[in-house]
Design a binder for these strands. Structure first.
Lengths: 190, 190
DNA sequence: GTCTATACCATGATAGAC
DNA sequence: GTCTATCATGGTATAGAC
C-alpha cells in the first residue's frame, strides 16, 4: 500500500476515534510511522487530508452498498444488511458513535466547507434505502421510510455511545427488523 | 450577574456552537469581554469550565422539566413539551445539533472523564419521560418508550443538522406527536 | 477582582539535506 | 520519497502589579 493510502487510512481511523479537530498531524504521522516532514509531501493542509478521508469513506460506502446488492437478492434482506451494521460495528459505535453522524456533526459546528461532502454519505444511504423500499412497493412512502431508518440508526448510535451500551444497540437492531417485518406483513399495515 | 456566571454562560454557548475542543480560552474571554489573565482567577483549567458548563446544563434541564410539570397537568401534554423542543429550538438544532447529544459524542471521542456527567442529562430526560409514561399506565413498557422518544429525537437532530433542514425537524415532531396519540388511543395498541 | 506580561508547549506549516 | 531542522501561531497556564 502506498504511503499516501496509509496516511488516509490512519487519518480515517483517528478522525473517527478522536475527532477531526482533536487529531494532529503528529498523531497521524505517528500512526503511520513517518515523520511530520514527510507528511507534507503528501498533504499540504489538514483540510486536504479531510477531503481524502471523506472521499475514501464515500468509496467504501458505495462498495458496501454494492456488496449488499450482491449478497442479498431481495430488497428486504438488503435493508436488514443496513440494520445489522448496528450489531456488526456495535463495539465501535458504543465507543465512538456513528462515523458518518459524528463527523458531519463536528464539521457542522466548525462551519467547515467539507460538511456538505460528508453529508453526501447520508444521501448515499438514503437513496439506496429508498430504492429498496420502492422495490418493495412503497412508492410515495419510500423516502420517508428511508429517512425513518436512517434516523432510528442515528438515534441508536448516539444513545448507544452516550450510555456505552452495546446491548442496547442489539435491541434496537432487533426492534428495527421487527418494524420492517411488520411493514412487509400484509396483515399489519401501519 | 457575576463574572463567573458570565464565563460559564458564554462557554456554554461556545461549546455548543463550536465544540469543546475547538473553543479556546481566548474565545470565551473575548465573548465575556475580560482578559485571559482574569479568566484564570475563576477557572484554573479548561476541564473546570467544562464541569461548570455541564453542571449549569444539568440545572437548566432540571428547571425545564420542573416547568413542564407545572405547565401541563397531564403526562401526555408533558411528553408533548419534550417533543416540541425539536421545533422550538429548530434553528439551532439544524445548525449545531442537539447540545446534549453532540457534547456527549465529543467527550466520548476525547475519552474525557466528564463524559459520564454529560450523559447524566440524558438520564434526567429518560427518567422523567419514563415517569410520564408510567403515569399513563405503561408500567413495564415505560422505560422502553422513554428510550424510543429519546432515540427518535437524537436521530432527528443528527439528520436535521446533517441536511440543515429545519422543516424536517418539524415533520419529525409532528410524527412523534402522532405516534404518541396512537399509543394513547385505546383502539390502536401497538 | 481585574489587568498585563510572560513562560511553555503543541500544532500547522516550510526549507532544504539525503 | 523520506528525513531533520526550523519557524510562526495560538492555546494553556502562571506570576505578579494594580
Amino acid at each position: 500500500m502506498s504511503t499516501r493510502d496509509q496516511i488516509v487510512e490512519a487519518a480515517d481511523g483517528l478522525f473517527y476515534e478522536q475527532g477531526f479537530a482533536h487529531t494532529s498531524f503528529a498523531d497521524v504521522a505517528g500512526a503511520v510511522g513517518i515523520s511530520r516532514g514527510n507528511f507534507y509531501y503528501h498533504f499540504r493542509t489538514k483540510d486536504e487530508i479531510l477531503d481524502a478521508v471523506i472521499a475514501r469513506r464515500v468509496e467504501a460506502t458505495r462498495a458496501m452498498l454494492a456488496r449488499w446488492e450482491e449478497e442479498s437478492g431481495d430488497p428486504a434482506g438488503r435493508i436488514r444488511c443496513f440494520i445489522r451494521i448496528l450489531v456488526a460495528n456495535g463495539g465501535k459505535i458504543a465507543a465512538f458513535g456513528c462515523p458518518v453522524g459524528s463527523l458531519t456533526a463536528e464539521l457542522a459546528k466548525l462551519g467547515h466547507a467539507a460538511q456538505a461532502e460528508a453529508g453526501q454519505i447520508f444521501t448515499l444511504f438514503r437513496d439506496w434505502l429508498r430504492a429498496q423500499f420502492e422495490a418493495l412497493g412503497f412508492a410515495a412512502e419510500a423516502d420517508g421510510l428511508a429517512m425513518y431508518l436512517l434516523s432510528r440508526s442515528q438515534g441508536a448510535a448516539v444513545l448507544g455511545s452516550a450510555f456505552r451500551d452495546e446491548a442496547y444497540l442489539r435491541r434496537e437492531a432487533d426492534d428495527l427488523c421487527a418494524w420492517l417485518d411488520a411493514k412487509l406483513s400484509p396483515t399489519r399495515k401501519d
